[in-house]
Design a protein around this nucleic acid. Structure first.
Lengths: 339, 339
DNA sequence: TTGAAAGCGGTACCAT
DNA sequence: ATGGTACCGCTTTCAA
């Protein structure tokens, strides 16, 4: 293994000069810099991360606490993970992966061992037990999601409430007066994951404000689960012509079920999906959808980590939802709202 | 921050004694051990990972190179990642996440900086450019997958060829004489990902050996993609009564398409899926399926890392496929094979 | 069974 | 602009 001393010797300078050449923390003559760089290239020198972290008290690694749940849509989770990892590299950081099954103890372990400089935490619940721990740690934290109280911690997330409103508004604009939300599984609501609540709140608020009928039903992500939810809608709110699906796994199933019950999309009913655009586009009818900008949010999270590391104060950022029109929402020119 | 010296002082022993008490590398009297443990608990001491890796030349971190492709079924990838992360923790290791977009350079960077003790690499292709690099590195590697030549590296994977044979055999056992494989997208074959080839080889070999008709068609993971593939099957091999789907995203779509063309499952045609059991169970008809034991393979990978770290030689392990019977494969008692 | 001290490979202060 | 060197916190000889 080649060390900084080897490089110094080869370049005919002192170790401190090599160190400063590397960090740029003090002026080095162009000529010296070149000799050093040549030595580094020739020897294939790589600073020892452990030695560096010991001396400098920073690791250039950030921890990413990612969820491991079956009631979450995995492709989106993975997109967040990939976005954070990629953005971290762009900031010359690596990512230490923490699976949430370790809980608060895992965060303490990693922080206590000085393994990371900061935390990015996904899947935060209203009263997440990790929050008090994170506040106490000296390493800064960015939450992907929005807990009940965010004080002292940075947060980034989609503005789910605005997304819920946007969905309803789009259907209202198309003349719908009875809309249903096929939401996440009950478990997602019960767990206190705020995005489920926030979307639903936006949905219900907008329905109330625009004076249309709106019904939100949770949905288990299976063929039968969707069947049950759809039955509830048909029973509790007959005449529903607009569907919002905030439950990726059942998007395709919903389409088939509607068709199976004689309702053509978009001729008889409109469907608006919330989820990845690829999902929306891969269906029998290309679905109008509100995307989840995981790449953007992941990159923002890392940006905010950098801010905190630079000494700036925690902040909360909500990303505005964006709707892409495709082929699943049609105008209802007449006033008939029967099935 | 509390250091080993603080602990030593509090316990009234030397630093080396604390170190040895922690590592267990030399006998410590029960009484001393207790005093040390008490001091550790009281002070909340955590060894500094960087200092430790500097002195001991090992990090207790393993790198996990995970793919970032859109043509892979993400839930399964994630299951591998979770399995490796969990197993790593069970071996007192952490996981540094590498997204494959960095390629061989990322591996060299991380190894050169002494950030990890070993590598677990997913999504290996026949002539993966990372292989020569990994062979050269001093850190041992375990591949999840099977490259063209595995010499010098450990490998774990599902025995995909056996899986392909198992699928055909199951359909043959149920009296089918014309079976089709709806496989992964062309990109998966072209990339040289061996699992696609191996499954297909097993499928075709078994079909040939049992003397039945067998047709393998790749399939783009979308509604239209499935439509195209199904059309090929109907044209090139009319009378097909057994379908093997090795393409998770289109499983549901295939079911609907068959139904749409007047073929009931399992009455008219049998369908056998390859993929997670939850996927198979969430369909309109509960599908007989061959699972992908990601948890088992991930755990094995970590086990093999531990073996290599302990000085044992590289080895290759192929996990036998397991088939779970559900409701999508029926016996064809007569000899009619018409659509 | 325990202690003292020499590294491990960097960083950054103090000099020049 | 550059060099010398005292740490950073831990592991592991060497000694007792």
């Amino acid at each position: 293994m080649t060390t900084i001393a080897d490089v110094a010797r080869a370049a005919g300078v002192s170790v401190s000069t090599v160190s400063y050449a590397l960090s740029g923390r003090r002026p080095i003559s162009a000529e010296t810099r070149e000799r050093i760089q040549a030595a580094i290239d020739e020897l294939g020198y790589r600073p020892h991360a452990g030695a560096r972290s010991l001396a400098s008290r920073q690791t250039r690694v950030m921890a990413l606490a990612a969820p491991l749940r079956t009631d979450l849509y995995v492709p989106v989770i993975m997109q967040f993970v990939a976005a954070v990892a990629t953005a971290a590299r762009a900031h010359d950081h690596d990512v230490l992966l923490l699976m949430n099954d370790e809980g608060p103890a895992g965060l303490e372990r990693v922080a206590g061992g000085s393994m990371v400089d900061a935390f990015v935490v996904m899947d935060v619940a209203t009263n997440d037990p990790r929050l008090p721990v994170l506040r106490r740690l000296r390493e800064p934290t960015v939450l992907i999601g929005l807990p009940g109280r965010a004080d002292g911690l940075s947060c980034v997330d989609l503005d789910w409430e605005a997304a819920g409103r946007l969905a309803v508004q789009h259907l209202v604009d198309h003349g719908h007066t009875a809309v249903a939300l096929v939401g996440p599984p009950p478990a997602a609501y019960e767990r206190g994951t705020t995005y489920a609540h926030r979307f639903r709140t936006g949905f219900e608020t907008a329905a109330a404000e625009t004076g249309i009928r709106g019904l939100a039903v949770p949905c288990e992500p299976s063929h039968d689960g969707l069947g049950a939810s759809l039955a509830r809608v048909d029973t509790e709110q007959p005449g529903t012509t607009g569907f919002v699906v905030h439950n990726e796994p059942v998007v395709g199933t919903l389409l088939h079920a509607l068709r199976g019950s004689g309702r053509e999309v978009p001729h008889d009913v409109s469907v608006l999906a919330v989820g990845p655009h690829e999902l929306a586009e891969g269906q029998a009818v290309r679905l109008t959808s509100i995307g989840i900008p995981a790449d953007e949010i992941g990159a923002l999270a890392v940006e905010m980590v950098a801010d905190l590391l630079a000494g700036r104060s925690p902040q909360t950022t909500l990303v505005a939802p964006r709707l892409v029109e495709r082929d699943s929402c049609a105008h209802r020119s007449d006033s008939s709202a029967g099935v």
